[in-house]
Amino acid sequence: MLNLLQSELYKLRKEPSFRVLSLTLLLVAIALPLAAYYSASNGQNSAVNGIQSFMNGVKGNTLFMKIALAILAGFFISREYGSGVMKITGSSGYSRERIYAAKLTAFTIGIVFLSLLCPLVCMAVGSLLNGFGHLQETETAVYFFRTLGLTILFAIAFAAIVTAFAFMTKEHGVTIGIAMLVFLFFDTCSQLIGRYIPIYKYLYEHSVFKLFLEVSAFRLTSGELALSIAMPAVTACAFGWIGMMAFRKMDIQ
């Protein structure tokens, strides 16, 4: 299993889409606080410090992470079917469960890295420009670590969902296209459907999709916090298991 994971992490490091996404997010994370800094210099807005930049980075993640998930899943997972690499891995003498677990773990590490890149670099650049600062609305350290922890947790949950999907579609173009469509329009569509179907609204509001939008909230009740921890954990386990079972029975073309 360790050998498989090492091999997957090597592939991830060498994956061009992962490198491009990392570089793009890095540039965005540098640009966001810089733009806020120059805007404040011109008297258009108040100065944005480190923790506020961190918050902006987390909010930006609701879009950036979803794009990263779709692209990386397409290239890192689904493309291996098209290139035939999955056939070599499938016949390498490791069980399907191990192959899936190694791929999921490496993909999750990649997504967690990408999801932390923007908030943390934003925070670092914001801190350099205006100091780390503090929040009026809540305890700054608690907010920082809670938000960071939840970001990681939701990244793991989304990675599990997308991995299962990417293993089933087997076409990188299809994976990227459909995942992008789902991630970009799911929330809007769900809010619309939820107006007419109350049970759907209830399910959506308790799903990782809706809960993820609340990650950067200043205050969470203990119930909301418990739900924000439990739901991504359950989602990750459920989709990890579903994906693994599906891959076990699947023929590798």
């Binding site: 090492q6 091999s7 891995t89």
Partner: peptide
Amino acid sequence: IETPALFPHLSATENLEIYRLQ
């Protein structure tokens, strides 16, 4: 099986490194 399974963006050595680790 059917076609050589390669990573097109990697060199021959890098391709083999994946399987060495695996």
